[in-house]
Amino acid sequence: MNAGRIRNLLLGDPQAARVVPPSGFTAHLTLFAAGAMAFLAVFALALSTASGRLADRWAEELARSATLRINAPADQRTEQTKAALAILQQTPGVASARALSMEEQAALLAPWFGADLPLESLPVPQLIEVIEDDTGYDAAGLRLRLSAEVPGAVLDDHGRWRRPLVDAANSLRRLALISVLLIGGATAAMITLAANAALAANQQVIEVLRLVGARDGYIAQAFVRRFTLRALIGAGVGVATGMIGVALLPEASDEGGFLTGLGFQGAGWLLPLVIPPLGALVAFAATLFAARRRLGELS
């Protein structure tokens, strides 16, 4: 179907819309279905974009850092730390390496043991933060060298626990996108049902129109235009309500973790604005399909 025919279907003869009786439960059903689905789609999109951001952040932050743990007796810890730092400075692909201070290590343990942990009296290993450059380092080679020269060193490149987290965040994003698709499909199904009900309820109107020489396109136009506009209006209201709901969610914070970052950011706020035209497009296709099938059954 070309653009001209679509334009005619939506904007063509305004008289065509008048020939079909205006009221009926299908009007309310379409408005409600489009509004509710658009509302849900906003939240699914928010979840999708938030989990996408999370996956990207985890992948980005964790992929570029590693931790070297020095599990040495207290009298050798400083020596081995210096040796490990020297090796790291010589290792290609390592951008920087630094030993964490006592305060930094205490801060890392604070969520579990409290802020006033006497770290110096505990056999806590020394941690070295390793930041890699764009080329990355050879983790297996580095481990081999460290095992020979710094026996108490254990390299943790975070891959072991980073991958499942990133996978989980990506799965969440995929699920949210699938939800958006399912919402679109459910909207199409509901509008098809509503359009079929409207077409069945107006069977006599359709017969009269056929009798006086109306083409199928003219008859379909009256229904398509009506359902498309209803879906557009319903989805518009649903999106507006959904965006207000998302805007009222708590701001992202470290304390709140993932659950407080469930919103849109920056240009992401424009994304839900695609939903009403998409909803209208779905309604257009669903009603056209229903109208053609129904009209094809008539003589």
């Binding site: 020939v19 009786p21 009269v208 020489g213 003219y218």
Partner: peptide, 20 residues
């Protein structure tokens, strides 16, 4: 058969309406 929601003049003019 008529379209009961339309005034008589519109019903009589229906063939003109549908033919543009």
């Amino acid at each position: 058969r008529f379209l009961d929601h339309l005034p008589l003049a519109d019903n009589i003019a229906l063939p003109l309406t549908v033919s543009g």
